[in-house]
Each structure stands twice: as structure tokens, then as C-alpha cells.
Design a protein around this nucleic acid. Structure first.
Length: 202
DNA sequence: CATTTGATGTTCT
DNA sequence: GAACATCAAATGC
């Protein structure tokens, strides 16, 4: 069966907010070492724009060792450590030097559910398992080791399986945890399916 | 229930 | 030394 893996041209679209919308309902997959493949339906995203968005790590065109990968052409992973504990996964978008990215905040488990439960030390499947940016990376075994990984490769990738969520009505809201960004904190650049349980916060 | 707090490490000033 | 795109456990109603 041919896989509908998202192509480089999908990630290189110029409107990062549009990409964030389109990613809801797509399927994020990881194949780590010799583990079984794990995946989940993306249920929550946030857009970060390199130009004119104070909430973005690369706002104002600042380049540091950490943010350098955000200036890469779209289609690579940006993974960083948050609060010393959590690995947060972003998709770099747009063409080279724009530094746009989409943060994946929540998924609904699909493939490899038993392995996901094991990684999270959970007994049952419920939203607390994978709804939250630090939770889903643990579930899919995404760490900063995977920073800069090419999303068209065989370690982390995103597929379009035309799952029902992809046609649900989307809700939007302010981004989480960016109060420091002043006026930019008010932008409604967070997206999730209306009525979905697999969302970190309403 | 809601709210607070402690854990934890890298980056940047 | 402060800040940080968070989470889970503990405490307060």
C-alpha cells in the first residue's frame, strides 16, 4: 500500500498558520530504533511565525545554536527541551530563512498503542496519555536527539490517512504559555477539532 | 472540584 | 542567575 507521507512541498508552504490548520487530522508517526512503529492523529497545533511574532523562539531574526534549525527550509523537526523536563516537537515550515514552525500539542493514539502505554507507564488509554506537548513526545519517544531530523525520512514523518477528524470543524484559540509575548500572545493561532477530547486545554 | 508547588536542564543575559 | 511554548502530585476548599 502506498503511504501518503506528506511531501517537502507541503511543509514549504508560505503561510504557517494555514499549515497549522492543515496538520490537524494528519497522522504523526515515529519508528525509533527497532521498536514497533507508533503513531497518533494530530488533534492540536500552534503556529509560530519567525517574522513579527514575539512568541516565536526565532522572533526578530535572532539566530542561536538552539534556533538555527528553524531557519532551515521546511520539512525538518525542531525539538527542544522545555522546563528542563519535556521535549517539545515542532515542524519547521516555509522556505529557508523564514523560521516559521508548527508546535504539535496533542495526538490521539493510533498505531502501537501498547508500546505507547508502556512508554508513558499508563494502564488505560485516556486523553492524559497523549494530550499535551510534553506527553505526546514521550508517547512517541521523540527527544532532542531527533532535532533536525528530516520529516520525509523513515524516523519521524506525517501521513495523510484521510481520517474522519480531518473533516471536522476546527476551533481556534489563543496559544498556551506565551503570555510574555505582549500583543502577539492574543493571536488565535492554536487549532483543534471542535468537540475533541484529545486537546490539552480548551 | 480548583489551585499551588516541585521537578528539572538548557539557553540566554 | 533568571527565564522557560510543561506535567504530575500535593494541598485546599
Amino acid at each position: 500500500m502506498a503511504s501518503n507521507k506528506l511531501s517537502r512541498s507541503f511543509y514549504q508552504q508560505e503561510d504557517v498558520v494555514k499549515v497549522a490548520r492543515q496538520l490537524v487530522g494528519k497522522v504523526l508517526c515515529t519508528q525509533i530504533d527497532d521498536d514497533e512503529m507508533t503513531s497518533g492523529i494530530i488533534t492540536e497545533t500552534e503556529a509560530y511565525c519567525g517574522r513579527g511574532d514575539k512568541a516565536c523562539h526565532a522572533s526578530g531574526g535572532t539566530r542561536t545554536d538552539r534556533t538555527e534549525i528553524m531557519y532551515h527550509a521546511g520539512g525538518v523537526a525542531y525539538v527542544y527541551l522545555c522546563y528542563g523536563i519535556h521535549h517539545l516537537f515542532n515542524v519547521v515550515t516555509n522556505v529557508e530563512d523564514r523560521a516559521d514552525a508548527v508546535l504539535i500539542r496533542a495526538i490521539e493514539p493510533l498505531d502501537g498503542r501498547e508500546l505507547i502505554l508502556e512508554r508513558r507507564k499508563y494502564q488505560k488509554i485516556n486523553p492524559a496519555l497523549t494530550a499535551g506537548p510534553g506527553r505526546l513526545t514521550q508517547a512517541l519517544s521523540i527527544t532532542t536527539d531527533l532535532d533536525s531530523t528530516d520529516l520525509t525520512g523513515d524516523t519521524i514523518w506525517i501521513e495523510d490517512r484521510n481520517v474522519p477528524n480531518s473533516v471536522k470543524e476546527l476551533a481556534s484559540a489563543k496559544r498556551i504559555g506565551v503570555e510574555y509575548a505582549g500583543e502577539d500572545a492574543k493571536r488565535s493561532w492554536r487549532f483543534y477539532p471542535k468537540n475533541s477530547k484529545w486537546v490539552s486545554k480548551k
